[in-house]
Structures are given as C-alpha cells and as structure tokens.
C-alpha cells in the first residue's frame, strides 16, 4: 500500500493567480475539477445533447410556423427582415442565459448543499478557487458548444448576413459568464430548493419579454424603459446586431452592461463562497 511515494505537492509555479491570492484559496488545479465534469457528462451525454435541441425546436417552431402568419418584422436597423431572422439571434442569447443560469444555480446548489461534492474536493489540496474556476469553465465550454451548433444551423439557413457574425460566439460566451457570475452569487444566498422558484420567476418573464419574440416598439413607452433594464434585452440587442450587421456605438453600451454585471457577480460570489466554505 505504501510502496510508492506519489508526488502530491502543490506546484511551485502556478502563475500570477496563485501569487496574488491568500494561500489555500487556489492550488492551480482547476483542470482536475474539469476532468470530473467530463466524466460525469460522458455518461449523461444524451441529456447534454438534448440541451442543444431545445433552442432549435424553438427556432423551427416559431421561425417557420409563425413565418407564414407574420411575414416581415422591423429589424435592428429599421429595415424589414423575416421573422426567423428576427427571432434566431434572440434565441441564441436566451439559450446562453438559460444554460448559464441553470449551471450556476441548480447544479451548483445540488453539489454544494445536497451531495456535498465540494466538501470532498476541499479536503484535498484543492481550494475554493480551483473548484469555482473548474465549474465555470465546464459551463462555458458546454455553452460555447451549444452556441456554435446553433450558429452553424443559422449559417445553413442563411440567417447570418454579416461578417460581424463571427463575433457572435465569443459574445454569447461573454454573456454567459455574466449570467453565471450573478447566478452563482444568488446561489450562495439560497437556503432550500423553494428559493429556486424565484430564479424561475426572474428568468422566465425575461425570456418572454426581452424583445425576444417581438420588437420593442410594441410596448407602450413606459414599459419600454422597464424592458431595457433586463440584461437579456441587452444580450438580444448584441446578438441581433452582430448577426444582421447593424453594429453601432450602442453596442459598447450593451457590452458595458455585461462587464459591470460580471464584475459585480464575481465579487459577490467569491466573497460569499469564501465565507461559507471556511466556517
């Protein structure tokens, strides 16, 4: 049993992150946590793949089903575009949001409170940051795969009409980071499964009313302001602009919204996690 003496020391050099953080927070090994995610998802691959089909069903259903009923709608540049071309970028944004929020709330909470997966990880040299980075990276890899698949379908359907669309993938990943950060911060405040109703209560109306399915001009002016506060509205604006090629200065404003959101989410999540885990 004790014939070999394996090397289990913390690596000497693990980059800048290791040097600026209090010791014990980071062991430079988030890849081990990522490896776990791959193992878990290898067996539930069908559920993973199914996540890719959900926005596609929406796209075919709403895009083509409504297609004949609706005809053209007003696009981001004021021009008329087909309903499919209008709704597809919005579905891309919404699916980035949904995936990120599910991962950062339900899945994290399950492992945190119920399965105590993280307790086991923290009994090893891993620190809270290894765990957090590993989990977020997996969520982003999966999200990026879904987004890439969806964009490929859009390309095949001729819905990507501008070279700007190359940026849609990184933009989707960035939007997901922001939603995941805020979702994780919220999760640290949750006490039981009952609290997840509130997550649903925030995500579902946002999905329906953030100009995902119909233009902002449909709302009375007072409501337009409310809609413009939703993060998903800004994500939809970014995606619609990139896919149709109407990229203006407003895009920077939308991006700033997400930079702020990600920053606030990360700071709150890191502080709360440290407090909860190092009791």
């Amino acid at each position: 049993m004790t014939t070999t003496a394996p090397e289990t020391r913390v690596p000497e050099r693990v980059g800048v992150l290791f040097r600026v953080l209090p010791t014990g927070m980071y062991a430079g090994r988030p890849s081990a946590v990522l490896e776990r995610s791959f193992l878990v998802n290898r067996r539930t691959w069908l559920a993973v793949v199914s996540g890719f089909f959900e926005p596609l069903f929406f796209l075919f259903g709403l895009g083509y089903g409504f297609g004949a009923l609706i005809g053209d709608v007003t696009g981001p540049g004021g021009e008329h575009i087909s309903y499919v071309a209008f709704v597809a970028p919005a579905l891309l944004a919404a699916s980035a949001m949904n995936g990120a929020v599910t991962d950062a709330t339900f899945n994290i909470f399950f492992r945190f409170k119920y399965a105590r997966t993280y307790d086991a990880m923290l009994a090893t040299p891993l620190g809270p940051l290894d765990v957090a980075i590993g989990e977020i990276t997996w969520a982003l890899i999966r999200g990026a795969l879904y987004s890439a698949g969806f964009l490929a379908v859009m390309l095949g359907m001729g819905l990507l009409t501008s070279p700007w669309a190359v940026l849609a993938l990184p933009a989707a990943v960035f939007v997901a980071v922001a939603f995941a950060a805020v979702g994780m911060a919220c999760t640290t405040f949750m006490r039981s499964w009952q609290d997840f109703d509130l997550v649903n209560l925030a995500v579902m109306p946002m999905f329906l009313f953030s100009t995902t399915f119909f233009p902002l001009s449909v709302y009375p002016p007072a409501l337009r302001v409310v809609v413009q506060c939703f993060p998903l509205y800004h994500a939809v604006e970014i995606m619609r602009g990139l896919c149709t090629g109407f990229v203006g200065l407003a895009m920077l404003g939308h991006l700033a919204y997400f930079v702020l959101m990600a920053a606030v989410g990360l700071v709150v999540a890191a502080r709360r996690l440290g407090k909860l885990l190092l009791a």
């Binding site: 409504f66 004949a68 009923l69 609706i70 005809g71 709608v73 309903y83 579902m204 109306p205 329906l208 009313f209 399915f213 119909f214 449909v218």
Partner: peptide, 20 residues
C-alpha cells in the same frame, strides 16, 4: 405570461386570416 408575450405581443405582428 406566454399568453401575454405571444398572444398580445407577437399577436400585434399577425394579421387575422384564414390560418387563425
């Protein structure tokens, strides 16, 4: 909420016709 978003919201874009 679906009724509001699709029925009323998207509904503004749909002309009543044979299909409906």
């Amino acid at each position: 909420l679906y009724l509001l978003a699709l029925g009323i919201g998207v509904g503004t874009q749909i002309r009543p016709g044979g299909a409906t």
